[in-house]
Design a binder for these strands. Structure first.
Length: 116
DNA sequence: ATTCTTACA
DNA sequence: TGTAAGTA
């Protein structure tokens, strides 16, 4: 399938699909026309990349994690240092959660001082 | 109309 | 990440 179709089906923009290829996350074949030719498996892969990107993972992190994630569900594998990387991601998310909580409180305080 | 690459008021 | 430009 061409890039436009996998884009619609995966929710990943055409722009990002091309970018992920330069980063080695997705490697579609090329047709004689030069057009990228994606497989059905690439659709699942693109969706997983979207999920991880939404989770705040960097390209580098995804490059290490993707080959260790099997089914659509976060599943471990005989991969080694993965646990450490995932722990790091978890801490990163926790810090982000704390920052957001502070921001939430700030806005909430303004709202509170609005209608006393 | 769609995709490709390159580049950025 | 989007978009414009010039092709294929």
């Amino acid at each position: 399938m061409k890039i436009g179709e996998i884009s619609e089906r995966s929710g990943v923009s055409v722009r990002m699909l091309r970018y992920y290829e330069t980063e080695g996350l997705l490697t579609p074949l090329r047709r004689d026309s030069g057009y990228r030719d994606y497989s059905e498996a690439d659709v699942e892969e693109a969706r997983r990349i979207r999920q991880l990107a939404d989770a705040g993972l960097t390209i580098e992190a995804m490059r290490d994690l993707l080959p260790c994630i099997i089914s659509p569900e976060p599943r471990f594998d005989p991969c080694e240092n993965l646990r450490a990387r995932l722990d790091g991601e978890l801490e990163k998310l926790d810090r982000k959660l704390e920052d957001m909580a502070r921001s939430r409180d700030l806005i909430a305080s303004y709202i509170a001082s609005l209608s006393p």
